[in-house]
Design a protein around this nucleic acid. Sequence first.
DNA 1: CTTATTTAGTTATCATGATAATCAAATAAG
DNA 2: CTTATTTGATTATCATGATAACTAAATAAG
Lengths: 146, 146
Amino acid sequence: MFFLRELPTRMMIDRYVSASGVGDTDTVAQALSMMREASQLGRILDAYFSNYNLSQLKFHILIVIDREPNTDSLRQSEINQRLDVSKPVLHRTVASLLDEGFLVRNDDTQDSRAHRLALTDAGKTMLAAILPGYFETISDYMEKKP
Amino acid sequence: MFFLRELPTRMMIDRYVSASGVGDTDTVAQALSMMREASQLGRILDAYFSNYNLSQLKFHILIVIDREPNTDSLRQSEINQRLDVSKPVLHRTVASLLDEGFLVRNDDTQDSRAHRLALTDAGKTMLAAILPGYFETISDYMEKKP
DNA sequence: CTTATTTAGTTATCATGATAATCAAATAAG
DNA sequence: CTTATTTGATTATCATGATAACTAAATAAG
């Protein structure tokens, strides 16, 4: 999260960046602007997902299972390879998706410690319902921002 | 936070965006890429701040007080106008900065409900110590990313 | 003036991120 | 084979974000 509503002035950045010779002022200004915009868009998307009682993480879990080319299920550890989130948070969020009926869990025949997670029909329906508005929300933000 | 390590393919975006006519595929792809990069840089910055037992929010609080042109103190409500964060979180984090000795709090002579928050010498020293590395960290990330 | 509304700050509670530590099964090493 | 290490999942605990509801003081409205 990047909280600053007004970014540091070019002068202020310049005082530390080009003065100390560690980088380019414009590039740093661009990075700060990127972080601010991503925070704003992130908040807008969180609001969009909350209409469906979902979160960005839940959405991403559904997405990575759905888009897998050769199977319709993944292990928790495989989801973890695809999502940059800690194991306990993934575990808790998967548990919540199971509880809400968007995922089902079956034993893994290869490894008795593991399970395979697949989308239910409700999960597929939710994903189909949420995707167009997701891209539209992003598209709207990009058009309307200065 | 944007967790997806691999962004949706252009084809997948296209299926929802240009097909439904609600936006431009390239623009959406650019937005997703921006969110991913901002997440990654955010994690790197969090790691940098944690070396100083600080957070991005604490840093931003110190910054907005320090950069104020006509005064060396702000009310909590004034900080809130400058930072996109909820009142309770700001309150808690200011309390923590007071406790750590980076801020001091004095009564506001205009309004008995309010207080004025100013940097201590330790706060100014911390800010001076952390700023160059902050910009350098951002600069490094921008140079090294693909 | 008195009452109503707004503003500044605070408290309680919840949601969602992280790390550290643990258990059991699978795999590698001796 | 037996022991050591790695891997998959889980639990406990903490950090840091949010909203809702509250108090007290300041300000506006009647």
